[in-house]
Amino acid sequence: MAGKASRAAFGEALVELGARDERIVTVDADLSKSTMTAAFAKKYPERAFNVGIAESNMIGIGAGLALAGRIPFVCSFACFLVGRFETIRISVAYTNANVKLVGTHAGIAIGEDGYSQMGLEDVAMLRALPNVAILQPADELETKQAVAYAVEHDGPVYLRLTRQNLEPVCPLDYRFRFGRWLVLRPGHDVTVVASGGPVWNALQAAGELEAQGISAEVINAATVKPLDEELLLRSAGKTGRVVTVEDHSIAGGLGGGVAELLSEVLPTPVRRLGVTGFGESGDPHGLYAKHGLDPAGIARSVREVLGR
């Protein structure tokens, strides 16, 4: 597969940004080769801290660095990072520390390592914290812009990144805007809101559906929190059917947020695609097919929602 993993794009962006902004530091817990901060650490060793396999301490140190004026990127696998939810809740969120939390290896797409390494509930947990923004870019271009934005954002940010390579989905002239989604493909029969790794699959599904006479509007939700309410309501109002697509538990993630908003403001049938139950080891494509996150699975769900 061509394309680049969003974790790799993140690592490259951080090295570039680090040259311009002395305040940027990294804090890792023995996974810098996997979170891709290793290049930053090599270039700016005095600004990179590896605290060993101790994620709670890593998060707290990040909070302290932020309180002393640094801009820390605190990085681990999504599950290990957000698994220390109580530390994020108090030391980062309630303290309102300007920490950039970076969770890589999001979702079942990590494949063979299995459930214990898969971030599947991280968005649900962090969505419950009032002041934590959640960004989930879908390709290399968007990731680099999202990282640059995170530096500018005043307050806690969670950046959710993939292990696997991502095909380009955003136009070359794309500009990331916080809280704003992008219609990647206009349509009128159904709204498909996708985020992160499976966005490309949603586009593929839309192509397949078009051949079957179904016009799907595909939206890339790069900001998972806050939702782009305006765009969502406009699209759902037009199509009357919504399908959400994410590599995350179907409980509490993007789909949960979309369903919450629509049920209160514009009751619309919603089908949430994502992971049900625990993840498991396997090849990523097989896992996506099993959970209906591959192009064929997304197209099948859309047809079901439309009753065709």
Binding site: V27, G60, G64, L67, A68
Partner: peptide, 27 residues
């Protein structure tokens, strides 16, 4: 107030981060 605390065990990590950040800033 320097940090939210009360969920026990968290303050020392924050203090370490602040001490590091102050050192980096030459304070």
């Amino acid at each position: 107030i320097e940090a939210a605390t009360g969920s026990l065990g968290q303050g020392l990590s924050i203090a370490i981060g602040e001490a590091l950040g102050l050192r980096l800033a030459g304070s």
